[in-house]
Design a protein around this nucleic acid. Structure first.
Lengths: 112, 112
DNA sequence: ATATTACCTAGCCATATGGCTAACCATCTT
DNA sequence: AAGATGGTTAGCCATATGGCTAGGTAATAT
């Protein structure tokens, strides 16, 4: 039952990891470059990368001594789709409520 | 710097809490009804509700002894927007890459 | 007046998370 | 061959998270 969404949303709930994602939308980058702007120790940063990779949001290959990381679009789209679905259901319900309110309004007016 | 997105994504990274959200898109509900389908103790469930409420995804009012919970749309839209933005940037980059590839293709063909 | 219902608080427990340092490869550079 | 660079592993620590039980309180139903 453990959903993709679990690990995706968890991955993206951390500001450091979101920053990495934002950087990676601009194109792939080696670990050291991704690490540079963040004021935390490298091993700590590597943990974040592992979380991202485990969630499927990111992949990486090592060539020589440098590991290059790139973003993976599918999980992003999946999460977006879930949010979109929820919002649409919610809005549809609001519409029905609106229609109901109008109807009540009409009836009430008729009755008077 | 602590972003709204932090607590939102964290809130939504748990399957129990996502289920609650899904239920609430259908309309408001009292705590006991929200709790019913989940096989966990009430106090545990209440913690989940607190997380949701702290993230701004949900609000509730108590009347008599029953507390009614309803969903709040704004944070949902905000998160969706972040995801959407990332995906669009990423896709735009792919398009540029595609154009570049085409151009290279053209030049290579011309040169031969 | 009592019992039931609906929720809340407190407190315990195990595991997960995000941070660190220290030490260790492995690959380039010089 | 030595040194510097880029990444990795191991292990420690504090706090957060998700679960539980036990024991409230306040409102309604009998």
């Amino acid at each position: 039952m453990a959903n993709h969404l679990d690990s995706f949303f968890a991955a993206v709930s951390d500001p450091t990891r979101r920053a990495v994602i934002e950087r990676l939308t601009q194109g792939p980058a080696p670990v050291s470059e991704l690490h540079a702007p963040h004021d935390i120790a490298l091993p700590t940063f590597l943990k974040h990368l592992k979380v991202l990779e485990a969630s499927g949001l990111v992949r990486s290959e090592k060539k020589g001594r440098v590991r290059t990381v790139h973003i993976e679009a599918a999980p992003l789209a999946e999460a977006e789709s879930w949010l979109n679905r929820q919002r649409r259901i919610w809005e549809a319900r609001l519409d029905r409520l609106g229609a109901l309110a109008e109807e009540i309004e009409r009836n009430t007016t008729d009755d008077q």
